[in-house]
């Protein structure tokens, strides 16, 4: 494992910790899209099926279980916690899951490395992860006030895949020049979707202003 990959994983983990912290400490999930969070549960469930078939490392297994556990608990808080669920911006979080999930599934059926259940679902999870942030970005754009924790959460979540891109470049040159178009292009799309957000996040940070996205 190289330093970029580790930095990516840590950024990803930190983003989730920040989100859980926000929910648990402030008993509020304002500005957080349940649609996006549910899509991440689907992403992790379909990607980590190999937990049962293949052992890679203690680190790998632990992180997979942490990502599964935390993503499920975030959805649980937003749907069922009697205080938290009342802070959910349901009327503004209107993006349809299936608009994203169905095309990704069809694409995974068409374009994959190997036609097996595990491989197609893994590919589906890669495609779905790339676009799963969209409901969250739409919700942010509709929010008048984006609190710091939410802004930092989205920033770190975007930074994680950008670090993975660097990791793939590094791996390409250090490990037999393996070409992996599916995750590479998906990761590139995923990072590009954040470009606009990154721009306004960094601008607000530099000017010491409150983050707000233009409508």
């Amino acid at each position: 494992m190289n330093v970029f990959r580790l930095a990516g994983d840590m950024t990803h983990l930190l983003s989730i910790i920040i989100l859980l912290l926000k929910i648990r400490a402030t008993k509020s999930c304002t500005g957080i899209s349940l649609k996006t969070q549910e899509l991440y549960v689907i992403v992790f469930l379909t990607r980590y099926l190999d937990l049962f078939t293949k052992y890679i490392s203690f680190y790998n297994t632990t992180m997979k279980l942490v990502f599964l556990g935390t993503s499920i608990s975030i959805v649980w808080y937003m749907r069922y916690h009697k205080v938290v669920k009342q802070t959910y911006n349901k009327d503004q979080d209107t993006f349809r899951h299936y608009f994203l999930a169905i095309p990704c599934f069809l694409l995974a059926l068409l374009i994959h490395h190997e036609f097996t259940v595990i491989e197609v679902l893994w590919t589906f999870s890669i495609y779905l992860e790339a676009v799963a942030i969209l409901p969250q970005l739409v919700l942010l754009q509709r929010s008048r006030n984006i609190d710091n924790l939410t802004g930092n959460y989205v920033f770190l979540l975007g930074a994680y895949r950008a670090l993975y891109l660097v990791n793939w470049v590094y791996r390409y040159f250090t490990e037999n020049h393996l070409v992996r178009w599916i995750p590479w292009l998906s990761g590139l799309v995923q990072t590009t979707l954040y470009a606009d957000f990154f721009y306004y996040y960094i601008k607000s940070w530099k000017n010491n202003e409150k983050l707000q996205l233009p409508a």
């Binding site: 990803h12 992180m63 997979k64 490395h113 490990e175 037999n176 992996r180």
Partner: peptide, 10 residues
Amino acid sequence: AKTSSLKDEL
């Protein structure tokens, strides 16, 4: 295909 198909990632 080689084993390092990025399946060792998260």
